[in-house]
Design a binder for these strands. Structure first.
Lengths: 188, 188
DNA sequence: AGGGCCATGTAATAGGTTACATGATTGC
DNA sequence: GCAATCATGTAACCTATTACATGGCCCT
């Protein structure tokens, strides 16, 4: 279970409310860990009960008040313990791979449209990551573009590079899949 | 939920027992979908109840008897329906990415050993996939190495190529991560 | 005698998804 | 007036993981 730890990391990077965390899980952190607001509120409540995080009620005008969470000493210790604990590389789950093998018992050509849709989603994700990279890391207006090396920044960048590499690899593979499906469609 | 469908595909490729399916999920099918025997037995029972699969008791000598499952007409129809249903590309979950961003608040150098361990596991997976590719698809003794194009075979191969591409990409990224961590370790 | 493989399962717990629920403000 | 955004939550259900449980055969 790493949702706890993903939330702790996000709150260390910047304290925020459950709602704000949910938004981050749709963007940056969400590139490599997903969570819905329901999950987040549940985990926040549990971590607050365990003394891992502190809450501060923040009144706002023109908006509902919010609870701003920040990481407490116990939470930092729990994160540190987890960081030093070995974890096994997870196996992937690809619906699409199941569908491709299943297509052998159905109509392979019918899968082409589905694969094209996948291709488009991954193309959009890649464009989004690349835009984020320019904005936050490599572009001229990027924060601390020239300055002392910042560990947090470097680490965020290397994670983003992983996302970019993943999307590029996926796009190339989807092209391979499409070529294979088209070949099978015309072979007979 | 695609475990049902992954099992149906596997049983279409070759009927087998729950135990055999569990072994397949450690290998071939398991490259892109994981499941433990407990999950598999539960789903088999449910699919049998729904008439998606048929069972045949197979007595064996020197071994416990087994139940051999095969896909029934209703199961084939359910698979076909799922194949024609659009699915969203799933988001990834990478513990390691959480750890890398978390390392900014701990000791980045302490992560090096963990990343090296990951690197080794992925290197072994790649070697395993490549050996399987030679054995089953590209090697001289591969079945149907020369012959008419076989859709099932081609589709299994393109899925395997996806696994190979994934492992290669991951290894390259882990090298990038290691270089970044080492740079941060020596920078101060 | 002990470990590993074959073979099937139950039970408890944790984690994730979906649907429902409320209510104010801002902009079109 | 309607939709979107901000903000928080409950409840039901489904899925997945972990631990426990059994028992025979084969090999060293």
């Amino acid at each position: 279970m790493a949702l706890d730890h993903a939330i702790l990391v996000s709150l260390l990077e910047r304290p925020g409310s459950g709602y704000e965390l949910a938004r981050r899980f749709e963007r940056s952190i969400g590139y490599f860990w997903t969570a819905t607001h329901q999950q987040i509120y549940r985990v926040l409540k549990r971590m607050e009960g365990d003394g891992w995080i502190d809450v501060r009620e923040v009144p706002q005008q023109g908006r509902p008040d919010k609870k701003e969470y920040s990481v407490a000493a116990a939470g930092r210790a729990a994160l540190s313990a987890w960081l030093h604990e070995p974890i096994e590389p997870e196996s992937v789950r690809h619906d699409l791979a199941v569908k491709i093998r299943g297509a052998a018992f159905d109509d392979p050509a019918a899968l082409i449209r589905e694969v094209e849709r996948y291709r488009q989603v991954h193309g959009e994700r890649l464009a989004h990551y690349l835009a984020g990279e320019v904005r936050d890391f490599t572009g001229p207006g990027a924060p601390h573009a020239s300055g002392p090396p910042d560990a947090g920044r470097e680490l965020q960048h290397v994670v983003l590079r992983g996302g970019i590499a993943y999307e590029r690899m996926t796009l190339a593979w989807l092209d391979d899949v499409l070529a294979t499906l088209r070949r099978l469609g015309t072979a007979r």
